[in-house]
């Protein structure tokens, strides 16, 4: 995998002299594949959930939502070597009741329910409307990554939360969001070897330029960083970047 001379896929067979992927480029491709993999799995889950909600006859109930969501969460969090610390669905106001949300979210291998007491509150939507991981996908109708941030609601850990809006009808209102929590600790474990191959001062940064995982010892997860030109920029997933050379801001 780390051979600097390995060829760059199918184009190697074309008539043009093939561009040779460096070890750094290949490592960046691996990082992108993993983050994009999480995002694609989430998008597929959102589509399945939307279709299943649309197919529900009559009133959508909490029990029905639990039954729909829990098997997928179980699969995600129990995946050996998987990335999900927790996952679930949160209903937008209107799906189950006017001011009502509904949370079907579980964490850990034992599927501990998260914040389920809120489901007994008539104004539970007030609990989520301000949270970035809920508000942005609902307002924009697009996928979003929140963090890294300290997640007081679920894990009390330093996490990234990937969320995706769910539509029961293509032109309809956002029915809710599906999401996955990924701890930075777990991300560091699989991203660090690839990051080191990009460079000794390589940093995986979020859209705000905050370090998520860093190979440089003076930049920690959570620190604001900046590319140190000349620096190669590799896009990772929808919003992240790997900088080959970074400095602390």
């Amino acid at each position: 995998m780390s051979e600097a001379t390995s060829a760059a896929g199918p184009s190697a067979a074309s008539a043009e002299p093939a561009p040779v992927a460096t070890a750094a480029e290949q490592a960046a491709v691996e990082l992108d594949a993993t983050i994009a993999g999480i995002e694609q799995r989430l998008a597929a889950w959102a589509a399945e959930t939307g279709a299943a909600l649309a197919a529900m006859s009559g009133k959508v109930t909490g029990t029905a939502v639990d039954k729909l969501i829990r098997p997928v969460v179980e699969e995600l969090v129990q995946l050996p070597g998987g990335y999900a610390a927790g996952a679930g669905f949160i209903a937008n106001a209107g799906l189950l009741g006017p001011e009502r949300s509904y949370i079907a979210w579980w964490q850990g291998p034992d599927l501990e329910p998260v914040d389920a007491l809120a489901n007994f509150s008539p104004n539970s939507i007030s609990r989520y409307v301000k949270a970035e991981w809920f508000r942005i996908p609902v307002e924009t109708g697009r996928a979003h990554v929140t963090g890294p941030y300290v997640d007081f609601l679920c894990t009390d850990e330093y996490v990234l939360t990937f969320t995706h809006p769910v539509f029961a009808r293509p032109d309809g209102p956002v029915a809710g969001i599906v999401g996955v929590d990924v701890t930075v600790q777990r991300l560091e474990r699989w991203a660090m070897p690839a990051l080191r191959r990009v460079g000794p001062r390589a940093v995986l940064a979020n859209a705000d330029g905050r370090a998520v995982v860093s190979a440089a010892s003076d930049i920690d997860a959570g620190d604001l960083a900046a590319p140190d030109e000349p620096c190669r920029h590799y896009p990772v997933g929808r919003t992240f970047t790997v900088w080959s050379d970074a400095v602390a801001r």
Partner: peptide
């Protein structure tokens, strides 16, 4: 303030 510090340990201790 603990959230801005981005330390899960300090945040838990504060709680």
């Amino acid at each position: 303030v603990a959230a801005i510090a981005r330390s899960a340990r300090l945040a838990r201790e504060l709680i």
